[in-house]
């Protein structure tokens, strides 16, 4: 009960940042150079047409009134229409968001699957070869920019070895995308039992996911190693040893669960880094996600699309951090009591 109210309180705390993001995206797009009314009216328009378009867009009102309109539209799920395609931004984002999320999550899980065991091993044997390997891998991971890793992987695995499929989107054109349920091709394919499509989608995803994963390796592995080292040298681990508990139980139940707390916090941050890194990776692999969409919109000065993208990212960020905090509250009984 106490936990529930604490989680409820944490959710309430997420409201001010969301509101702040809405205000900032609103102001930012208003501060962009160029007059949207002129764009919409087209090249041949005269002054009266432009004024008419401006009135239609609601741009003739004062800023606070415009903001109220903007809020009303947001509540109705209306992010405006894209300048370049003319379609609602909301629809376009919703169509592309699953692609980005699928890739980012795949990269994150791949990275966790390698980094966490590596960090734990390095912490249990500090100074050993595995510790040095861990250090080497994470240094390589952070020092290589994602677009370079991406291109390098394409060169080796697609061009030289021919193991990977052509880096053009989520699915080879030979296959038909599975019926949309979650929007994640791999999961949707499993849901309809189409293994062929599943493998095809997975093969497309491997290279970009590895590219993202390499980038995320360093912070996760370093944090796991540091947190495990401090947990293992903790008094409670020593006490657990003194009472004769088995080494597996000490390592995983006593040390790792305590070390998991800072690692979880790091995961939240890494996920947000990945959302940013995604933009470049999607471009390199022609991935039809919101990152490549945003670049296109930015180049075309498509303010509604940019606004929608920023808002979408910020919301994702808030939601992910909220989820991490809720998880921390569930694991750590002390959360919210110290401060």
């Amino acid at each position: 009960m106490e936990k529930l109210s604490r989680i409820g309180g944490r959710i309430l705390q997420a409201i001010p940042p969301v509101f702040g993001v809405i205000v900032i995206t609103f102001l930012l797009t208003r501060a962009l150079p160029g007059d949207p009314a002129v764009f919409f009216a087209g090249l041949m328009a005269d002054d009266s047409t432009i004024a008419q378009v401006r009135a239609e867009l609601g741009l003739d009102h004062s800023l606070p009134v415009q903001f109220l309109y903007y809020l009303r539209d947001l509540l109705q799920g209306d992010l405006g229409n894209s300048l370049s395609t003319g379609r609602p931004v909301m629809t376009e984002l919703m169509a592309r968001l699953p692609a980005s999320l699928e890739l980012t999550l795949a990269g994150l899980f791949l990275s966790m699957a390698v980094a966490i065991p590596l960090g734990v091993l390095a912490a249990t044997r500090p100074g050993s070869w595995i510790d040095h390997l861990c250090r080497l891998l994470v240094t390589a991971g952070v020092s290589l920019p994602t677009f370079f890793t991406g291109l390098f992987l394409i060169y080796v695995f697609y061009y030289l070895l021919g193991w990977a499929p052509s880096p053009l989107g989520r699915l080879d054109f030979l296959y038909i995308s599975p019926p949309q349920v979650t929007g994640f091709y791999t999961i949707d394919a499993i849901l309809v039992g189409d293994w062929e499509v599943f493998w095809a989608a997975l093969r497309q995803m491997i290279l970009p996911a590895v590219t993202l994963g390499l980038f995320a390796l360093a912070p996760i592995a370093r944090m796991t190693r540091a947190a495990m080292l401090s947990a293992l040298s903790g008094d409670y681990v020593r006490a657990a040893r003194a009472s004769g508990l088995g080494s597996g139980r000490i390592l995983w139940v006593y040390a790792f669960r305590n070390a998991a707390l800072p690692v979880l916090t790091t995961l939240g941050m890494v996920f947000s880094f990945l959302l940013g890194a995604n933009v470049l990776v999607e471009k390199v692999f022609s991935w039809p996600g919101i990152g490549s969409y945003a670049i296109g919109a930015l180049v075309a000065s498509d303010y509604a699309a940019v606004q929608g993208f920023v808002l979408c990212m910020a919301l994702l960020f808030v939601v992910v951090n909220l989820m991490i905090d809720v998880m921390l509250t569930l694991i750590d009984p002390r959360v919210g009591l110290e401060s």
Binding site: G234, A239, A240, S243, G244, L245, Y254, N258
Partner: peptide, 22 residues
Amino acid sequence: ELRGREISMIFQNPRAALNPIM
């Protein structure tokens, strides 16, 4: 084999010697 069963130990700073999340 002896630890806990035959020889056991208590420490200074008892709060730190207990697992904080269990």
